[in-house]
């Protein structure tokens, strides 16, 4: 039997460890100040290659400000920010060359046709001539815009404009696509279509970074979500983790006054968390049937109630409050 040289079995350190996912964005203590206003306050996050990371927050939470720092439109006030391994402050042009950006405002050129918009944008990346035309045709097709080449902006619907901006952001085959509220203001059909396209990009391995107000959007598209409020990250995790951690599995909404439920101490013992807003009691718990059964045992059978599963919306509203912030 041949003797096995033990040394041969010692693998180089890079192979013995599981492969480390590449970090696409890394922020540490990232802050942005506008005069006296602290729009972003020392946030930390890491986005890995191939994932879809979402920032969820109300108006004015600081989502756009974070996005703009990532796509090098504005400079940070403090902290560290690396995109594709490069410092965002000193390598803006290189980063812009390698990422795709869908800004909150469409910023399509109203004096050019849809095709001209794409070709001009491609030229800024050095993509010109036949290669640019081929790329543009392929992108228009993949975003279901074939036939709209010669249309001007005013002839396109809101959903088409948004898809055109997404197509434009893909001309340089970006390593990451940054989308600031990709579906705000779109009707349900248009939104579904954008979701479908984004899911496809995600499946093809493209790293996505998006912001949204819509829980459904975040739950559907994102592997990981950071809930952000007043410039701070309140929580971070997968949609299911966040629901489990901050809302529980079920929510029982009891409509009516205090007389519908037992005293506060008794209720607190039955649920994970309770909240009251606008004549509705929100009881976060692990199983609505069990809770209703217990309440019945105590002699309470709320006539008007809604028993449903907890959603990301509950997480979000739990954290940021049910009141309108503005």
């Amino acid at each position: 039997m041949p003797e096995i040289d033990a040394a041969v079995l010692v693998l180089p350190p890079s192979l013995s460890k599981p492969p480390q996912p590449a970090v696409v964005v890394r922020a540490r203590g990232l802050s942005k100040r506008y005069g006296a206003l602290e729009a972003v306050r020392e946030v930390d996050f890491t986005i890995e290659a191939g994932e879809c990371f979402g920032f969820l927050g109300v108006n004015g939470a600081g989502k756009t400000t974070i996005m703009k720092m990532i796509y090098c439109r504005i400079a940070r006030s403090a902290g560290e920010l690396r995109v594709l391994g490069l410092d965002a402050a000193s390598h803006a042009q290189e980063i812009k060359q390698r990422i795709g950006v869908v800004a909150q405002e469409n910023a399509l050129d109203p004096e050019l046709t849809a095709l001209e918009n794409l070709l001009l944008y491609a030229s800024f990346f050095g993509i010109t001539g036949a290669a640019a035309k081929r790329k543009a045709a392929q992108l228009l097709e993949s975003l279901s815009l074939t036939g709209k080449e010669q249309s001007r902006l005013q002839e396109l619907s809101g959903g088409m404009k948004r898809r055109l901006v997404i197509a434009r952001a893909l001309v340089n085959d970006p390593e990451m696509l940054v989308l600031d509220e990709p579906t705000t203001g779109l009707d349900p059909q248009a939104r579904l279509l954008v979701w479908e396209k984004l899911s496809r990009f995600r499946e093809s391995g493209l790293t996505l970074l998006l912001t949204t107000h819509y829980m459904e959007e975040a739950a559907r598209l994102c592997n990981r979500i950071a809930v952000i409020d007043e410039g701070k990250i309140l929580a971070e995790g997968s949609p299911l983790e966040l629901i489990d951690r901050f809302a529980g599995q079920d929510v029982l909404e009891v409509i009516g006054g205090d007389e519908e439920l037992p005293d506060e101490r008794t209720v607190a013992a039955l649920v994970r968390r309770r909240e009251r807003h606008g004549g509705v009691h929100y009881l976060y718990n692990s199983d609505n049937r069990v809770l209703l059964h217990r309440l019945a045992e105590l002699g309470f059978e709320p006539k008007r109630h809604v028993a449903r599963a907890a959603t990301l919306e509950d997480v979000f509203l739990n954290m940021t409050g049910r009141e309108l912030v503005e």
């Binding site: 796509y71 042009q93 910023a107 050129d109 990346f125 340089n172």
Partner: peptide, 9 residues
């Protein structure tokens, strides 16, 4: 017009 130019390099 310029806004989209500066998101490109």
């Amino acid at each position: 017009v310029y806004e989209s130019m500066v998101t490109a390099p």
